[in-house]
Amino acid sequence: GPAPCGHGDLVVALVEPDEARGTAYRTVTLRLTRGTEPCTVRGYPETIVLAKGRPAGVATVPDQTLGRPEQLTVLPDRSAKVTLAWS
């Protein structure tokens, strides 16, 4: 099957903001870099909040209420999405 995604395989294609009941959301669409073979991602990404380019010391936690991460194969016509929320 496809190999795990690595350096340069994925790019941010779209960031969609949303807000509900005091919580802000950003849904990030990740697509294959043009010409890249399909590859897989698994689980939650590591997430760090930066302030002026440096870690801001903000704790981040996975939230299973937004869906459980499965292994996904990213294809040229099939992107992967990550939703970030903060309140």
């Binding site: 994925l10 930066l50 992967a80 970030l84």
Partner: peptide, 20 residues
């Protein structure tokens, strides 16, 4: 000028500017 950095894989960091 806050941002969020996601590691989708150990060698695949993606930076999202314009947070906060």
């Amino acid at each position: 000028n806050d941002a969020v950095r996601l590691w989708v894989a150990p060698d695949l960091p993606l930076e999202l500017p314009g947070f906060g």
